[in-house]
Design a protein around this nucleic acid. Structure first.
Lengths: 207, 207
DNA sequence: AAAATAATCAAATCATGATTTAATTATACC
DNA sequence: GGTATAATTAAATCATGATTTGATTATTTT
C-alpha cells in the first residue's frame, strides 16, 4: 500500500529547480550530478532515487514543467474573450515576459538546453509538439488582429518568431535588480510590438 | 626561417568552420575533438598541432572570428554617412540577418556557446568588450534617429536588445531552403522594427 | 637529394563524472 | 514496538573523451 512521502525529505520539484539553477550557471553538460545534488544537500547517488532515469530525465522534466507553466499562463489570456486582439497581444507579451523574469533559470534552460533534449528521439517529438502549440498561441492572436483590420499585414510566422526571439533573449540578459523591472521591460516591449503592428503606412524598403 | 605552409594541408580556418558545424549540431560540450577532426579528415591528436591550447581555444577563436566578421560588416554600414538613421537601421538589420543566415553554424555558436567562453576569465573580458561594441553600433543609430525626431522615444537599450534577441533567434530557427530566403526575412524584420520606431502616437498601456 | 620543419597518426595517459551497488538510517503504518 | 518502505550515503564501476607522447610521412628549402 502506498504511503505518504516523508515530510522533510527533498521532493522532485526541489530537485528540478535546483537543476535549473545549475544548468543556468554551467549549462547541461557542464552541470555535474554532484552540483545538482549539492544544491539540495544530497549526494549525487541520491538523485537516482528520485530520478531513476538520470540526468537527461531531469533536464526533460525541467523543460516540460517550464514550458507547460508558461503555456498555461499565456493560454489563460488567450481564452479571455473580453479582450480585443491588440489588448490580448499586449497582455500575452506582458504575461510571457513576467513569467521569464520571475524564473530566469528555467527561462534560460528553455533557450539553451532545448537542443540537448531534441537529440533524444522520444522526447523530441513530444517536446516539439508542445512548443508548436505555444507558438500557435501567438500566431492566432496576430492573425486575428490582421483579420479584424487592427493590425497591418505582416508575415505572421516571422512576426511570431521575432517576438519570441526577443522574449527568449530577455531570459538571457535580464538580471534581478537591474535598471528596469520585469514590468517595465514588458511594457516597453509590448509597446514596441504593438507599434510594429499599427496599420499605418510604412515606408517600403528599396534595396 | 619561416617556411610556407604546405598547400594541401588543413588550415586553421578550415578547422574553425568544421568546429562551428559540430558545435551547432552537438553543442560545445557534446562535440568531441574527434568529431571536429573527422570533419576535416584528421585524427583528434592532429588538431593540437594547429591549436596547441586545445578545445576551448578553438571555441574562443570561432566566436571571435564570427563576431569580428559580423561587426565589420555592420560597422561599414554605420560609417556610411550618406544614409539617414532610418535607412541606416534598415540596412544594418538587413546586413546582420544576411550575415547570420549565410553562416548559421557560427551564428548558432554565438548564441549558444558564448556562455561557455564567459567562464574563462581572460577570454571573458575581451569578449564582452567586443560584444558591447557591437551592441553600441545599434544603440547609436537608434539614438541618432530619436534625436533627429524621425524615431519615437523608446528605451534605447531595451529596444536594442529586442532587435538583437530577434536576430539571434533567426540564427537558431533559420534553415536554408525554408519558406523564405534570408533576404525576405531581413526585409520583413526591418519593416517590423522601423514600424515600431515610427513616431506616431501609440495607445498607452493601462494595467 | 639532403636537411629541416610541418603535418599527421596511433597508441598511451589521465581525468572526470555518470551511474550502480550494497549498506545504513529514517519514517510511516499497524 | 515491529515491520515495511523510503531516503540517503559512501564507495565502487564504467565509460568517455581530452590531451600527451613518440614515431612516421610530406613538403619545402637549399
Amino acid at each position: 500500500m502506498a504511503r505518504k512521502p516523508a515530510e522533510q525529505s527533498v521532493n522532485r520539484l526541489d530537485i528540478l529547480l535546483a537543476a535549473a539553477n545549475v544548468f543556468r550557471r554551467k549549462g547541461y553538460h557542464g552541470a555535474k550530478m554532484s552540483d545538482i545534488a549539492a544544491e539540495v544537500d544530497l549526494t549525487a547517488g541520491s538523485l537516482y532515487h528520485h530520478f531513476p532515469d538520470g540526468k537527461q530525465q531531469i533536464l526533460i522534466e525541467v523543460l516540460n514543467e517550464g514550458l507547460d507553466q508558461i503555456t498555461a499562463e499565456v493560454q489563460a489570456v488567450v481564452d479571455d474573450n473580453t479582450l480585443m486582439p491588440d489588448e490580448k497581444l499586449r497582455k500575452v507579451i506582458y504575461t510571457n515576459i513576467l513569467g521569464l523574469t520571475h524564473n530566469t533559470s528555467v527561462a534560460a534552460a528553455l533557450v539553451f538546453e532545448t537542443r540537448t533534449i531534441l537529440e533524444n528521439p522520444e522526447a523530441r517529438k513530444a517536446y516539439l509538439k508542445r512548443r508548436d502549440s505555444f507558438e500557435q498561441l501567438y500566431t492566432h492572436i496576430i492573425q486575428e488582429g490582421i483579420d479584424a483590420g487592427i493590425f497591418r499585414q505582416v508575415d505572421v510566422p516571422i512576426f511570431t518568431k521575432t517576438i519570441l526571439g526577443a522574449h527568449n533573449w530577455v531570459g538571457v540578459w535580464y538580471r534581478e535588480g537591474g535598471r528596469l523591472t520585469g514590468e517595465q521591460i514588458a511594457d516597453e516591449m509590448s509597446n514596441t510590438f504593438l507599434a510594429a503592428l499599427s496599420p499605418v503606412q510604412v515606408p517600403e524598403a528599396k534595396h
